[in-house]
């Protein structure tokens, strides 16, 4: 008897899951992209009450993995799809489209008490690969440099490695933080700290550095303006991947993001609009 009740209960729960749906799709992936896409989807759903969009994070790898296994229709990523993943998409016979919807500028941050306010790419490479160990070597006070980085698997980590470290390895002694917020927190309370975060995350408790990619000729401040006109060098695109099979459903949302109004939201959240 008890068993029967149990079974019917399970059936009811299952049954409610397979209800009729309006146009709806899921977006999943990078936590970097999450704040923008979330905001965009909120505004979009206000205007199109018939569409329901589920946005969840988890990471670029999770999102693209879900796209391959079919648990999501749209993936957002802070890195380009890897060849490995492309091959898997081919194996699964799934055609997809890649779109860039915004840019993100990575800024190098230090503790506000640090007097240094500018560094060259070469100096950054020295710091993050562990060759430069004390602020004194860079003209600062005698203080050990504490390097904070993101987890090895994050898109942010890979981008920074590729574009700032010239593909060299981070020193193994860097402290890796599970998320950007933790980097801000730690850099804010550690005097000798240095780390890198997305432009949107910068706040009073940390100081953003000007950087130079031309051996110290010009130093550029990380601002939305400088990122937009491409004078700030550490800028990366943010991607959306979606299955070709649901192009019609996704298109209105995509064109909303790329519209002037959508791009204004990108700016509001703290990222860099495309135009």
């Amino acid at each position: 008897m008890k068993k029967l009740v149990y079974i019917t209960l399970v059936m009811i729960v299952f049954g409610s899951a397979i209800q009729a749906q309006k146009t709806s799709f899921k977006i999943k992936g990078s936590d970097t992209c999450l704040p923008v896409i979330l905001k965009e989807s909120e505004e979009f759903m206000k205007k199109n009450p018939n569409t329901s969009i589920m946005v969840t994070g988890g990471g670029s790898g999770v999102g693209l993995g879900a796209l391959i296994t079919g648990t999501t229709e749209v993936a957002m990523a802070s890195r380009k799809m890897k060849l490995d993943e492309k091959l898997k998409m081919q194996d699964a016979a799934k055609a997809f489209t890649e779109k860039i919807f915004a840019n993100d500028a990575l800024s190098v941050v230090v503790n506000p008490s640090n007097k240094i306010d500018r560094l060259t790419r070469e100096q950054l490479e020295g710091i993050f690969t562990g060759k430069t160990k004390n602020w004194k070597e860079l003209g600062g006070v005698d203080l050990t440099i504490v390097v904070y980085s993101r987890e090895t698997s994050s898109g942010t980590y890979e981008f920074f490695k590729e574009h700032v470290l010239n593909n060299k390895n981070f020193a193994s002694s860097v402290l890796s933080m599970p998320a950007t917020g933790a980097i801000i927190q730690s850099v804010g309370q550690t005097k000798g700290a240095i780390g890198y975060v997305g432009l949107a995350y910068i706040e009073k408790s940390v100081k953003a550095l000007k950087v130079s990619f031309d051996k110290g000729k010009t130093y550029v401040e990380p601002t939305v303006e400088n990122a937009k006109n491409k004078s700030y060098p550490i800028t990366r695109p943010l991607y959306i991947y979606y299955l070709k099979s649901i192009e019609k459903t996704v298109n209105p949302f995509l064109s909303y993001i790329l519209s002037a109004e959508g791009q204004k939201l990108v700016l509001e959240v703290g990222y860099v609009p495309l135009k």
């Binding site: 209800q19 759903m45 329901s52 589920m54 969840t56 994070g57």
Partner: peptide, 15 residues
């Protein structure tokens, strides 16, 4: 677990 969801879950296949 989801980082953020704008809506409450509807079915047991939601996050």
């Amino acid at each position: 677990a989801a980082y953020f969801l704008p809506k409450l879950p509807h079915s047991i296949f939601d996050q």
